[in-house]
Design a protein around this nucleic acid. Structure first.
Lengths: 341, 341
DNA sequence: CCGTAGACTGGAAACGTTTCCAACAGCGGT
DNA sequence: ACCGCTGTTGGAAACGTTTCCAGTCTACGG
């Protein structure tokens, strides 16, 4: 095992030609037919394959892109990663997974480590952001694409989604179903998603013709457990909501659980909407009505943006916004007998 | 932006000392106090940080480990990756995500690409295996750890879990609940998990004192949709099962759905067990009784095995088996009112 | 038959780092 | 006063690749 790999020099010796010619022959440009054949044969005999490090050093190109995220376990991030990988792999890029940690400072530190030059670019989803991080991103030695919020003001490429509008769509949906007491179940307000979703809710309910009562509860984080706890409070209020709009699918599942605990029927007594349109929500019972933020598409868009930047480092920063889409399912409207049980 | 990074040579010039001393000073061994201070200052002024590629070339060490899997989106794999990352990151290793594709041949091809030398090792979960793949793994130029089935015969390090015993535990559990018509809902038999789980079921039901009737249905793949379809057939049989043991959580969810379609109550009419103990199953309604195969722990074990191999390439191959654990939840026993609705 | 364009080849440098080896200074002991 | 040892430094090689540049050879047109 662990046999030492053949080098280009060895191939050259074997073929009895110069190193330069060997490289050309394998690389494909400016070599005679005979030379190519000869070198190919020698390379095959030795089982040669080019060393990625040597090549990287010479070419100043690693063929690697970092994907940095707070917690690789989060289903949404996984979906995004899938999208990134899907676009990048065919272009010969490898994806390196990194963890940002959940503070702006640790993300800044990670960004600084890009100076190590082990990667040609980074796609990052900062959970929290501050000025220092933005500045650090601006002076990064390689292209950086931010997924999360639009970075238009700073000349940083970013992929965002209008989650505020998505919350609006969810609110409008339940209102159109005749619900008049709407509870908004959000996650921490000091996070990027938390703040923008709050804004979306506030905007939606401040519309002229908005006729429902509203209530807001903030969960400790974006998890099912926190969702259950916060939803209980929401459902305990004097004017119990007949619809809960949750800031993500996990919170929505928490809301469903809390409602069930109280013997409430979904969607009859309480309609529940989620956000992110995760597989989790799609297979849940009841299937979750959810606002898709196009996770895979955001990943793909970020990857395409990255490809543009690695091709031409001086290309202008671009901001892409991926559309949202509301998928209506059993948690807001009875579609069949399954949930009526 | 994209300013060109400072090199060690520039630091040396700035400090007015030799390249060798500069490297030593920063690296920490065999340099005088004065020298260290002087070089540190110069490095700080220039914002120097060592180039990973140059170092890799010299050290013949990339500080990268590949994690190769058929589909990065699968929740189980994600959990494993989390475990791997958790162990590897503190040791300075980066994790490179790769896709094996779902055939043995494409996995073989990926393994061959290790000759490119861009990683120090690979942790792989082959969906399907054949002799050629095993041989290729055996002659890989870097250590390989296989997660899936034990590779004892070939001197390949592996982390496995006794999923066969896990299925046995699930069967025993439902029997102990008094169920006497047990349906086994498996995935494709030509996959590694499919075959070993089938073996587990066969062994369990061939025990001397086994007193229940059994039935088997094989789903097209390990997904909810395939699970629904296969479970329908299972539930349509003359002797309808009063318990369904599924080969993973997604199939189990499919089984729950199919049962609900028929107006059956879970767990009263049909008890359902899953496998993998995913977060998905934990938050599902009803919460899924599931056999944990210790996904995160398998990842951690594989990573630790890898660390041992990168430290000493000639270390003997080891096989680790991670224990299984049955988590009993609402899908087999009524625990509270939630599911009785 | 000569000159030259064109096709091809080989030598050598370069990418950025670490480390072997030799050189040198200072110092204590004989 | 000399020897050798220790601690520190600098020169240079090496890791594996690509590519610039110069040189050689062939073939073709004049």
């Amino acid at each position: 095992m662990t046999s030492t790999r053949a080098t280009l020099i060895q191939v050259a010796e074997r073929a009895g030609v110069s190193l330069a010619s060997t490289s050309r022959a394998l690389h494909g440009t400016g070599a005679s037919k005979a030379m190519v054949e000869r070198v190919r044969a020698a390379a095959a005999e030795l089982g040669y394959s080019a060393d990625a490090i040597g090549r990287s050093l010479r070419l100043k190109k690693t063929s690697q892109i970092a994907f940095a995220v707070a917690d690789i376990g989060n289903p949404v991030y996984v979906e995004i990663m899938r999208g990134i990988h899907e676009v990048l792999a065919p272009h010969g890029y490898r994806v390196v997974v990194m963890s940002t940690g959940d503070t702006a400072a640790s993300t800044t530190e990670l960004t600084h480590s890009l100076h190590g030059g082990f990667v040609d670019g980074m796609i990052v989803i900062p959970l929290r952001t501050d000025d220092e991080l933005i500045e650090q991103i601006g002076r990064a030695p390689v292209p950086v694409v931010v997924i999360g919020r639009a970075m238009s003001d700073r000349g940083i490429s970013s992929v965002s989604t209008d989650s505020a509008a998505g919350i609006g769509a969810a609110v409008q949906h339940v209102v159109s179903l005749g619900r008049r007491r709407i509870g908004f179940l959000n996650g921490p307000l000091d996070t990027t998603p938390g703040s923008s979703r709050q804004r979306g809710f506030d905007e939606a309910v401040s519309a002229k013709d908005f006729a429902a009562k509203t209530d807001v509860e903030v969960a400790a984080d974006f998890t099912v457990a926190a969702g259950i706890e916060a939803a209980r409070k929401l459902l305990d209020r004097p004017h119990r909501p007949d619809a809960i709009v949750a800031a993500n699918d996990l919170l929505a599942i928490g809301a469903v659980r809390a409602a069930r605990e109280l013997g409430l029927s979904i969607p009859r007594d309480v309609a529940v909407t989620g956000m992110d349109d995760t597989e989790l929500g799609q297979v849940f019972l009841p299937r979750l009505t959810s606002v898709s933020l196009g996770s895979a598409e955001r990943g793909r868009a970020a990857a395409r943006l990255m490809l543009g930047l690695t091709d031409d480092a001086d290309a202008p920063a671009r901001q892409i916004s991926v559309g949202t889409e509301l998928f209506v399912r059993e948690s807001t409207v009875d579609q069949n007998v399954e949930d009526a049980e």
